[in-house]
Amino acid sequence: MDSTGIHAALRGRFDTAVGELAPGPFEASIEVDASVIEAVCTFLRDEEGLEFANLSNLSGADYPELERIQAVYSLFSYKQRHSITLRVNADRAAPVIPTVEAVWPAANWLEREIFDLLGVEFSGHCDLRRILLPEDWVGYPLRKDYEEQPDYHGISTVRESLLTMKRD
C-alpha cells in the first residue's frame, strides 16, 4: 500500500489526531499527536493490509528554533513490503512522548537511546535509564545547546588545542 492509502486508513480511524500527509521532498510522512501514538502504532501493526510488524528506526532530532524535539518513527512491513514514516513533536522544555515498547519490543532500546542523548521522557517505559552514557552523566549531548562538563570523575575533558569544533 502506498502512503496515501496508509494515511487514509489512519484518518478513518483516528480523525484529526493524525495530521495531514506531508509529501516532503524525499519521503512522505505523517505527523501524529503524541497522545495517540501508541494507539496509532498498535493499529498499524494489527490492521489487515497494513501489518507493520517492524519498527525499523526510531530517531530523534532537536529543533531549538521551533522549540521542539521531534521523534521520527520509521516502520516497515515484511509481509506487505511497504514503509511509512511517523513524526511526533514534543515540547522542548519538557519533552514527553508515550512509549511504544508494548507494540514493538525493539522500541525499548531505541527509546532509551533517545532519552539518553536528547532527554525525551517516554512515559510508561519499563526501564528508562541512560544506555550509552554513564548513569551520572550531566546533560543531553545531542541537543544543540549542550555544554560539556569540564571533567568527569577527575578526568579533565578540556581539550588543549586551538582548534575548535564549534560552528562559527
Binding site: G24, P25, F26, E27, S56, N57, A61, V72, S74, T85
Partner: peptide, 9 residues
C-alpha cells in the same frame, strides 16, 4: 542539500 530528511537502508 535542501531541507528535509531521508531514511536510507
Amino acid at each position: 542539500p535542501p531541507v528535509g530528511d531521508v531514511h536510507v537502508k
